[in-house]
Design a protein around this nucleic acid. Structure first.
Lengths: 129, 129, 129, 129
DNA sequence: GTGGTCTAGACCACA
DNA sequence: GTGGTCTAGACCACG
């Protein structure tokens, strides 16, 4: 769990931090019972103010994903894993291959993200939603 | 070009609007010379205040992507397309197939986005960047 | 809706403020659609820092009781009324009479509150809970 | 004397513990000379850290309500009873009856507490205080 | 003028 | 040493 904050995009720092924790939960990097970085460590890693980290952690607490224990730290309460780890590995390999080809074709990261967004939205309409 | 704004995520409305224009540019939905939605239309679609739309357009203008012409509207100046349209279609098809499989495995949209993010970051270190 | 904060009891200011809003909702002093005092007014009335008021309002927002609208204010979303206003008036009259007698007997406010707490806890065990 | 601590309301644990002792004193459940639960018992009942119990007892000692005797325990020094026991019983019966009616009308515990608070505040202005 | 974000720093509650 | 509360004040997003 390593935080990074980009202050150039207009996206609030605490939103970025909370999003990174959620991402780690989704990818299985964090499991229930794990302790999040201490506020102080997060501050050291991300360069923001302690209160900003606290705000991100409180937000996650509101969402029921983590739990702060006075004097002990902040701990993961729920998982966001949606997929079996083995299947996840397979999906990741295939996606990595796709990224390789996309990059060879000149597509940058933002383009890849935009394309995935379009495909996801598109599938929504094709699917049941 | 259809705007939508989510006021629940903490991300500023004007950042979301500008991001959606950039995404459309990257995917080729908007090409140089195209006119952006009028402020009035954007307001109707997104429910925000006209000033907020104006701020987004001003931001894009500052980035050199669009150009406001007094009394005529706001027009696309530059493209963000990084890939040949045919290759893009091919990449999109493969990605759509991957998404299909991911969904069958139980992965949701946020999980897919998180996985792409992880792969992109990972390839960064493996690749040339 | 008039805030007051007692800084001598160890109870966090934002907890007191949120509690007073909840109380007003329960007693019907605030109804859905009403606007809460602006942060600035609350600051003027309670003497705390604007951030403290914001924290109380955010807490209530999380509980689904109020809704903050950028640039417009904070508005009541849900009611906590549990009793018909007429019945409430009746209950209040009888309770006021009881308070009168309790005071004549030398009981102070804290004693009355403690006694109500004991009775409520007691009834729980007598009742169905 | 049975302690319970709710860690979800933002109220410091030691404030809750001290408040419960005060309430017991007011209701006559604890009388001068009685021994408070040992720190060990209080810890077992409330789940907090021994230091937290000690802090609550120290607070009560500072208020002159209890007295710590080395190696023997902590003992009640003063009473907070404001009313003759018989009158208290009568008041309690009437209040219990009122609670019964309030509950039949659909009022919950928090509503009852809020109403009492409102009545007490109201009487303040009407009465002599 | 409304609410919201962030900072720097003091102090508190708890283990 | 952990998280939590509060302050004062700057600046931003939005209507």
């Amino acid at each position: 769990m390593q935080f990074r904050v980009d202050r150039t995009g207009g996206i609030p720092a605490y939103v970025q931090l909370a999003g990174q924790v959620r991402e780690a939960l989704r990818l299985g990097w964090l499991k229930p019972g794990d302790r999040l970085p201490t506020v102080r460590d997060a501050v050291a890693a991300s360069g923001v103010n302690p209160n900003t980290v606290l705000k991100a952690y409180r937000q996650l607490e509101f969402e029921g994903l983590v739990e702060a224990r006075q004097g002990a730290g902040t701990f993961v309460k729920a998982s966001l894993r949606s997929v079996d780890p083995e299947v996840m590995t397979d999906l990741r390999d295939h996606l990595a291959h796709w990224v390789l080809r996309a990059r060879e074709a000149g597509m940058n990261d933002e383009g890849a993200r935009a394309l995935l967004g379009a495909v996801l939205d598109d599938k929504d309409t094709e699917g049941e939603r």
